[in-house]
Design a binder for these strands. Structure first.
Lengths: 221, 221
DNA sequence: GGCCTTGTTATACACCTGCATAATCTGCCA
DNA sequence: TGGCAGATTATGCAGGTGTATAACAAGGCC
């Protein structure tokens, strides 16, 4: 009594790694990290479990790769939204903030993955350095946008403190929006984010909505 | 060949529940949720695994209880600091915010524990309900303190949005302070928190420092 | 064509997981 | 002083986990 054997299919290394990482992320997104077993991952990637060990030394290493890809994607989202427009400083800041507070950045799966690896980040110095670099890269971008506002009589130290505060607001909103999406109406996170960042900096960012196509009035709750 | 039997020791129900919850929390904080197996929990609590089922119906229920206690404990820290003084509304708000932004609330282990659970929150509806309840309890307390400021011409909807924003600032600062403590000088988190919450609400909270003994100038960086 | 490297699959294994249940101990009350 | 109830321990079980290893397939190279 023979069970049918999976047809042998040879594919590129990039394609296989991508499929495995993608399968890991989607499984964690749906059923939490406990659902992301080697067998489930391999099954979804259309592959047998052995390949995980072949491409990544172990399941943990695959998980780490998935985490790294998640972080890279999130930090890039804001910059991408920025690159397209050369508008005035307040509008650029508004775009950057808004990008972090709506899908695909605000996402339960992203929060879940991020939180799941937080303790590993605390334990592993290498990952901690990477995490810190990512955090500072984001905050520095924010600080640059704040500096570009060219408000008079603002010291560098104050700009730094403001960047920390704005970053915290964004982080907090991103977090709760991802974990408890049903508590916030559509567009509410963006509106609250722009309002409070504006309040912290003493500028009005809500009027900058018109500069952002995706942030039309219709998309606000 | 008989293995030695654990000595029978009878203890109060409260003591046993407390020991099991405490063991669960420390294990999750150290090694993430995966480390908190029934056997490891029972071992650390000085008990056999069967007791978990005896006092809590299942391991999941124990996890939920441990998470609930964590969330409640964080809110309680603020309320405790509040209970002692019957000062004016701005001072009370300042005390509440400051309590969340310094040890023992700001703590790497606490963040690790919280993150470990957040991982599970997404998968388990029961834990999600616990998280939502804890989050709302804290935010409602904050909203009450904001309302007590009795500023003129503030709608309930605006108060709600402000509470969400202030909660986000506190969450973000608490998080980053716990994960990357070396990036912030002592007292910086408290100062930034009071400044930005004040900016969001249009009040000055920094002057309220004098009302808080532990928040003397000496403790600020 | 024969061979060898390597991607891929299948199987085996040792361990661990949570849960159920039986066995045992102890304090309390009649 | 017995004995019962309930707290606590020990054992068993069915299933799942990650990983190691063997078997197989296919393409490149001489």
């Amino acid at each position: 009594m023979k069970v049918d054997r999976r047809p042998y299919r040879r594919e590129s290394e990039d394609s296989r790694r991508e499929a495995l990482i993608s399968a890991t992320q989607s499984l964690v997104a749906e059923g939490g990290p406990r659902a992301a077993t080697v067998r489930a991952i391999a099954d979804r990637a259309g592959v047998t479990p052995g390949l995980i060990r072949h491409y990544f030394g172990s399941k943990d290493e695959l998980s780490r790769a998935a985490y790294r890809q998640l972080m890279d994607g999130m930090t890039d989202k804001g910059s991408e939204a920025l690159a397209e427009l050369g508008a005035a400083a307040p509008a650029r800041l508004a775009v950057f903030v808004a990008a972090a507070l709506r899908p695909p950045v605000v996402d339960g799966a992203a929060v879940g993955l991020w939180a799941g690896y937080l303790h590993m980040v605390r334990a592993d110095p290498g990952l901690q350095a990477a995490h810190e670099a990512g955090y500072l890269r984001y905050r520095d971008t924010l600080e640059g946008l704040i500096r570009d506002l060219a408000r008079p009589d603002i010291t560098p130290a104050q700009t730094r403190a403001e960047a920390i505060a704005c970053n915290a607001v964004i982080d907090g909103l991103w977090l709760e929006g991802g974990v408890l999406p049903h508590l916030f109406t559509s567009g509410e996170l963006v509106r609250i984010g722009l309002t409070s960042v504006g309040a912290i900096l003493g500028v009005n960012l809500l009027n900058e909505q018109s500069f952002v196509p995706e942030l039309s009035l219709a998309s606000l709750g």
